[in-house]
Amino acid sequence: MDLFSHSWTALRTAVAELPDEDFARPSGCAGWLVRDLVCHLIIDAQDVLITLVTPTEAEPNRDAVTYWDIVEPPTGDDPLDALIVRLAAAYEQPWLLKFHLDDVGSAAGRAAELADPEVRVSTRDVVLTTGDYLSAYVLEWTLHHLDLIAYLTDAAEPPAEALARSREMLEEIAGAAFPPSFSDRDALLIGTGRRAPDGSQRAALGELAGRLPLAIG
């Protein structure tokens, strides 16, 4: 849960420090500008708040790793993706996106700090403990932090411990370890299809290369 707070704070800080012109630059998410990604983060924060106040007595059927499903790689053509683009454009000014993310994001962060990790919550038709739910989001925040800075040279990187933990989670999802020669960032970008491996990296991946990318959702 501490890593949830650390990775989420780092991501929100990176957004807050962006100059206005960076909001019109592309992000690492297919079809999304940085402003669209920030709008998506606002919705993510709302989802966290909703989930944390949706307790259930049902038995958990997912954990921090199995929370994620393997989905088709994003193309930018999904109707929800298109909605995000329209919603982000409606903000018009970057400071409004920053303000809303800080407002809702700070609330989500406080709610996470106050949450009982043993309480069961329900979301997306699955049940898991609050601790597992928040741990799952370390991967979400870290990947989106990489998306945020994909084409930005001066933005802060995700925390090293968040990168390391996210790599571990992705390896558990894959059922195989990435080559030791891969940095945590390389493993996440290549493993999720955000970047294609070069020739030497593909050779190092071996059979795992044929199972990539692991698009999660």
Results as ranks from 00 to 15, higher is better:
T13H: 08
R202C: 10
A10W: 02
R167P: 04
P55C: 09
P19M: 07
L41C: 07
A115P: 02
D81Y: 10
G199P: 07
E171D: 08
D186C: 13
L18A: 07
L3D: 00
D63E: 12
N61G: 12
D69F: 12
D47G: 11
R211Q: 12
L189E: 05
L97T: 09
A64S: 11
F178L: 05
L96A: 13
L33W: 00
P73N: 02
H144E: 10
Y137M: 14
P159K: 02
A162E: 08
L214V: 12
A88M: 08
T54M: 08
V71E: 09
K98E: 00
F4C: 09
T54C: 07
G28R: 02
S5W: 08
C29F: 15
A196N: 11
D2P: 02
H100P: 06
R185K: 15
E140N: 12
D132H: 13
W141E: 14
V71A: 03
V121S: 04
P74V: 05
T54I: 14
D154K: 00
L80W: 10
A24H: 09
P94V: 04
E113P: 04
A112V: 12
P213I: 00
A10Y: 02
C39I: 04
S5N: 11
D2K: 10
P73I: 05
A82M: 13
L212F: 14
D22R: 01
G105M: 06
D125W: 15
S183F: 01
P117V: 01
F23V: 02
V85W: 14
T13I: 06
L212Q: 08
V119Q: 15
